Simulated assay, not measured.
Amino acid sequence: MKISLRYFASVREQLGTGQESLELPAVATTVGAVREALVARGGAWAEALGQNRAVRMACNQVMCGPETEVVDGAEVAFFPPVTGG
């Protein structure tokens, strides 16, 4: 399954990229599994997306949790929590 990944704000800065395409293994069927696969890359990926980091997620431009299913061609985005005022 191939998906598009988007990274925003400090996550983008840490990773040095704003987007990429990724071929997922068949077992990665949720947004949480995508995050785990990226963390497994190690280095900046583990730092930016590790479970100890507050990271928001979206699938196809809708905010979601780690249990959200990912389908072929989906867009998954990761970004830090934001506040406004």
Rank of each mutant, 00 (worst) to 15 (best):
K2D: 05
L49D: 01
T30Q: 05
Q19V: 09
E20W: 07
E23S: 15
V27M: 06
F8P: 02
A44E: 05
V31L: 05
A48I: 04
G43T: 07
G42C: 06
A77M: 03
R56M: 14
Q14A: 14
R41C: 09
E36S: 12
L22K: 02
A40V: 12
A74Y: 03
A74P: 01
T17P: 03
L38I: 09
L38V: 06
V70Q: 00
Q14S: 12
G85Q: 11
G43A: 10
A37D: 11
G84W: 10
E23R: 13
E36T: 09
M1F: 15
A46W: 05
V39E: 02
V11S: 03
L38D: 01
T29K: 13
M57N: 04
C64I: 02
E75I: 06
A77H: 03
R12S: 04
G18S: 09
F78H: 03
V27L: 07
V31S: 00
F78W: 09
V71W: 13
E75G: 06
V27S: 14
E13Q: 14
F8A: 07
L24N: 02
Q14P: 02
M63V: 11
L15T: 05
E67Q: 14
M1L: 11
R35A: 01
V11H: 00
M63P: 07
V76F: 07
E23P: 04
S4Y: 10
S4P: 01
R12D: 01
T17A: 13
E13D: 14
M1T: 09
Q61S: 13
D72Y: 14
A54K: 13
A33H: 05
S21F: 14
A37V: 11
W45L: 06
R6D: 02
G50T: 08
M1A: 13
E13A: 09
L15H: 03
L38G: 03
A77N: 02
T17F: 14
E36G: 06
L15R: 01
Q14E: 11
V39K: 03
A74E: 01
A37F: 15
R53A: 14
T68D: 05
G18L: 08
L15K: 05
R12E: 02
A28C: 10
D72N: 15
L15Q: 02
V34W: 00
V55I: 15
A33L: 11
